[in-house]
Computed example of a mutant assay.
Amino acid sequence: MKNLAQIITEQREKKQISQTQLATLSGINQAHISRIESGKSKPTMPTVFRICKALDIDPLILADVLAQEFRAFMGDNSSTRSKASV
């Protein structure tokens, strides 16, 4: 399964626009777009929605992947969670 960074990059390239153009269209800093696409930064839901609007894609495509990545992350940190709740 593709991760969020891969899907955003793929969709941007499919539309044949640069990161700079995506930044302009979405109102998100180009450096942040770069960090998102490289997987160094996880976007918030509002950022995902802005990217979707700029790329003219259904937000559910990216929101579902983001939710899956979050669930996987929380699963990896379940021991941390249970210790914090004790």
Rank of each mutant, 00 (worst) to 15 (best):
K2N: 14
K2L: 04
N3F: 04
N3H: 05
L4P: 00
L4F: 04
I7P: 00
I7T: 08
I7F: 06
T9V: 02
T9E: 03
T9N: 01
E10Y: 10
E10K: 01
Q11F: 14
R12D: 03
R12L: 02
R12I: 00
R12T: 01
E13V: 01
K14T: 10
K14H: 15
K15A: 13
Q16F: 10
I17L: 06
I17E: 02
I17T: 03
S18L: 02
Q19P: 08
A23H: 03
T24R: 05
L25E: 08
S26W: 09
G27D: 05
I28Y: 06
I28D: 08
N29W: 06
N29P: 11
Q30Y: 05
Q30P: 11
A31G: 11
A31H: 03
H32P: 03
R35H: 04
I36C: 01
E37W: 01
E37I: 08
S38I: 01
S38K: 01
G39H: 00
K40F: 10
K40E: 14
S41T: 02
S41K: 07
K42N: 13
K42A: 11
P43G: 12
P43C: 13
T47Y: 01
V48M: 05
V48P: 02
V48Y: 09
F49D: 07
F49A: 15
F49R: 07
R50A: 08
K53I: 15
K53P: 13
K53V: 15
K53S: 10
D58H: 09
D58R: 00
P59I: 08
P59R: 04
P59M: 06
P59E: 12
L60A: 10
I61C: 07
A63H: 13
D64G: 04
D64Q: 10
L66H: 05
L66I: 07
L66S: 11
A67H: 06
A67K: 14
Q68H: 10
Q68G: 09
E69W: 02
E69F: 02
E69G: 07
F70R: 10
F70G: 11
R71W: 05
R71E: 15
R71L: 09
R71Y: 06
A72L: 07
A72D: 15
A72I: 05
M74Y: 04
G75I: 05
G75T: 08
D76W: 06
D76S: 06
D76E: 11
N77P: 11
S79G: 14
S79E: 15
R81A: 15
R81I: 09
S82E: 13
K83P: 10
K83C: 13
A84P: 10
A84K: 15
S85M: 14
S85I: 14
V86H: 12
V86W: 14
